[in-house]
Simulated scan of single mutants.
Amino acid sequence: MVKQERAARTRRSLIRAAAEVFADEGYVPASLTMISRRAGVSNGALHFHFVSKEALARAVEEEAAQKVRLITERCRLAGAVGLQLLVDATHTLMRSLDDDVIVRAGFELSGDISRPRGINLRREWRRWVEGELERVASDGGLADGVAPDDVASALMAATVGFEVLGARDDREWISRRTLTRFWELMLPAMAPRQAIGTLVTCGSCLSHGTDEVGVEEPV
C-alpha cells in the first residue's frame, strides 16, 4: 500500500512538473530531463511512469480537460443559467488559467501545431460555448437578430486571445477586471433589453474569489 501511494505521488509530481515546463517553455523545447529535474526524480523513475514526452503531455491534457469540464458543471450547479452561465464560466476559466498550471499547460498544448492528435482544449471549450448559446437562443435569451454563431465567434476570439496574451505577456489580460469590461461591452449587444438589468458582468459570487474590481452591479 505504501509503495502504491509513493508511486501515485511520484506520478502526480511528474504531471505537475511537466505542466510547469510545458506552460513555461512550450512542448517542443521541453525535455524529459527538464521535467524529471523539476519533479525531483530520476530519469528512470520518470520512464517507469511515462514512456515518452508525448505520454506526459497527454496526461497533462487529460487532467486539464477534466478541470475545464468541472468549471462548466460547477457554474451550472451553482444556479447560473443562460447568458449568466457563460459569464460565470468565462470568469472561472480565466481565474483557473491564472492560478492553475495544469489548466494553463493544457491550453498551451492545444495551441501547439506539432501535436495535431492531442486533446484540443480550445476546441472543447468552443463546443461547450456553442452548445450553451444554442440553448440560450432557443429559450429566447438572445436579442432579436443576434445569431448564436456570431456570439460564439466573438466569445472564442476574446477568451482565446486573453488566454494567449495572459500566458505569454501580461496576466492583466486574464484578470477579472479585463473580462468584466469585455462583458460590459458585449452583453448590451447580445441580451434582450428586459434581461440586461439582471446580468452581472463581473460574474456571480460563486464564480470567482475575493479579488475586487469595483462594486458588483448588474449591467
Results as ranks from 00 to 15, higher is better:
F107R: 07
E184M: 13
T178E: 08
R176F: 04
G214W: 09
R58H: 15
C205Y: 08
E132Y: 02
R168S: 14
I113F: 09
G44F: 02
D24S: 14
L32Y: 02
V164S: 09
R76Q: 06
I102N: 03
S138Q: 09
W128C: 00
F162N: 14
E172F: 08
D170H: 06
E130V: 06
A39M: 08
S204I: 00
R38T: 14
R177Y: 11
D149C: 01
I35S: 09
A191M: 04
R69W: 13
D149R: 08
W183Y: 14
R74H: 12
R16K: 05
V101T: 05
V2C: 00
A59H: 05
R176T: 03
T180Q: 14
T198N: 12
L206S: 11
R38C: 04
R135H: 12
E172W: 08
D170P: 07
M186L: 13
T90L: 09
L32F: 02
E163C: 13
V129N: 06
K3Q: 01
V2G: 00
I196F: 05
V151E: 00
F22S: 05
R171E: 04
Q66L: 12
A154P: 07
L46W: 03
G44W: 03
R126Y: 05
V136W: 07
V146M: 03
T33M: 10
E130Q: 07
C202Q: 11
V200K: 02
G166F: 09
E5C: 01
R181T: 13
E212S: 13
M34V: 14
D149K: 11
E108N: 06
W173D: 02
E163R: 14
D144M: 05
V68L: 15
D169Y: 11
A80T: 15
T72Y: 14
V146R: 07
G111R: 12
W128A: 07
R122Y: 12
A143F: 01
I196E: 10
T198S: 13
A18C: 00
T210H: 10
G40D: 04
A55K: 08
L187E: 06
E5L: 06
E132F: 00
E124V: 04
V68M: 12
A152K: 12
R9I: 00
V146W: 02
M34E: 14
T159Q: 15
T210N: 15
L187A: 10
L97P: 05
S175D: 01
R122G: 13
L70N: 14
V21C: 10
R115A: 08
V160E: 15
I102F: 05
D99R: 12
R76L: 13
M34C: 09
D149P: 01
V219G: 03
H91Q: 04
R12S: 12
F22W: 04
D144K: 08
S114R: 11
E108S: 11
L133M: 01
D24M: 13
T90Y: 04
T201C: 11
T159F: 15
D139E: 13
A154H: 13
L14W: 15
G197Q: 12
E134V: 05
V151H: 10
E25G: 06
E61T: 10
L179N: 07
S52F: 12
G118T: 02
S52L: 05
D139V: 01
A89S: 15
G209K: 08
G209E: 03
K3N: 06
A89N: 03
K3R: 09
D211S: 02
